[in-house]
């Protein structure tokens, strides 16, 4: 049972591996259920805005679960968070850039 201090430190950096295995399995189950839920919700033929909101909401939850637990973002520090924040800012800029187009389209503006 004796582990050298360094390998124990490796384990602690991402949490205790034995405990983390249970977390990984739980995240996997959640991802599978959410995928089934996405397809099931889509088959209900709900109004389009609601269908988009449901699918986008589930996708965001799945992305967060994968990033936080599988990619170990939950255990990272400021440098990695900084890089991720940079990417998210770029995505926000892309969304803000297209928002006038979307607003125009939804408002019925046509050229």
């Amino acid at each position: 049972m004796s582990q050298d201090p360094q390998s124990t430190a490796v384990a602690n950096a991402h949490g205790d591996p034995k405990r983390m295995v249970r977390v990984y399995i739980a995240i996997f189950a959640a991802l599978a259920v959410l995928t089934v839920l996405t397809v099931w919700a889509n088959s209900l033929h709900v109004p389009r805005p609601a269908a988009i909101a449901i699918a986008a909401g589930i996708a965001i939850i799945k992305v967060c679960l994968i990033a936080m637990f599988f990619m170990h973002l939950k255990f990272e520090g400021k440098w990695i968070y900084g890089v991720v924040a940079l990417a998210l800012v770029a995505i926000c800029i892309l969304i803000f850039l297209i928002s006038p187009d979307i607003a125009g389209i939804l408002g019925g503006v046509r050229h």
Binding site: Q3, Q6, S7, V10, A11, L31, T35, T38, V39, N42, A51, A55, A56, I58, A59, K62, V63, I66, A67, F70, M71, H72
Partner: peptide
């Protein structure tokens, strides 16, 4: 256990590939 950094990097990349598909699947198919 002392030398497994690249296993972790490969994992980070692979999870990103999964993450992108999680977005593409509802967008393109549903």
């Amino acid at each position: 256990p002392r030398r497994c950094e690249r296993v972790e990097y490969a994992g980070i990349y692979w999870h990103f590939v999964d993450l992108v598909w999680v977005v593409l699947f509802p967008l393109l198919y549903l």
